[in-house]
């Protein structure tokens, strides 16, 4: 049995009177591929904000590799090996593509990389994503799909043990979705656990070994893809009565 890399225990997050997450628990094993789905406003992004440290939860705890990280700020979680990509790409727009990757290498991954090989490390990641020819391009002028690739490669440069991919494929064409999926599979082969938040069900069912479904801040299903799709409660959440 593989060890749990992430344990989310009874996590609650409120915004004023609105309960965005209502004591949600789930685990993730090392090197697992987990899908996190749910209708709009169900709390997916809030959940990963609480996991990555962009938001602090009000109750419950987050445990990463047996360490309670509930109170750690985001940059420390990044150092431990939690990386995320953003739903709306947030490149460092004044920098070139490769400079974007050097930031996480110099900060998040600093304790885990050879300090004299940062450039080479960055190039290796760009090759993995198929971006090696674009290294010196200005990151602000990239196309949508390339922006997503940059977002993923920058997350990779943080040398994560857990990658949270927040709608990395929204708005992409079907062939572009396949490109991104391929990158995520390559990553997973290298031992990185992945939480995928996605609305494109084709991608979720193809990629994920297990799916957690959120609805209105509560977990309503947690099972392999096949069973989740047949779950009457999931159907109700998406389609109504």
């Amino acid at each position: 049995m593989a060890e749990n890399i992430l344990v989310v225990d009874q996590l609650t997050k409120k915004f004023g009177g609105f309960v965005a997450l209502d004591s949600v628990s789930f685990e993730l094993k090392e090197n697992e591929r987990l899908g996190l789905i749910g209708p709009n406003g169900s709390g997916k992004t809030t959940m990963i904000n609480c996991v990555s440290g962009a938001l602090f939860n009000d109750a419950g705890k987050v445990v990463f590799e047996n360490q309670d990280i509930t109170a750690l700020p985001a940059f420390k979680r990044a150092k431990l090996g939690i990386a995320r990509s953003f739903q709306i790409p947030k490149p460092f727009h004044s920098m070139s593509v490769i400079q974007n990757l050097l930031i996480p290498l110099e900060y998040a991954a600093w304790d885990r990389v050879d300090h004299h090989r940062l450039q080479e490390e960055a190039m290796e990641i760009l090759e993995l994503v198929g971006f090696q020819d674009r290294a010196n391009e200005n990151s602000a002028s990239l196309t949508q799909v390339d922006m997503r690739k940059l977002e993923l490669s920058r997350a990779l440069a943080a040398k994560p043990k857990l990658l949270v991919s927040d709608e990395a494929m929204a708005g992409l064409s079907s062939s572009e979705v396949d490109e991104i999926l391929e990158i995520l599979f390559k990553l997973n082969d290298r031992g990185v656990a992945v939480i995928m938040i996605e609305h494109i069900m084709r991608a979720v069912t193809r990629f994920c070994e297990r799916i957690v479904v959120l609805d209105a801040g509560k977990k309503i299903a947690d099972d392999i893809a096949e069973n989740v799709m047949k779950d009457p409660e999931v159907e109700r959440a998406y389609l109504g009565e």
């Binding site: 947030k90 400079q99 930031i103 920058r154």
Partner: peptide, 25 residues
């Protein structure tokens, strides 16, 4: 320096910088 790179990351996008391990504060 490395600090300057971190500052530039903060200038471009503070949230992303923090998530890339930059101790923004």
């Amino acid at each position: 320096s490395k600090i300057g790179q971190g500052l530039a990351a903060i200038r471009d996008d503070e949230t992303a910088a923090e998530c890339m391990g930059v101790p923004t504060l």
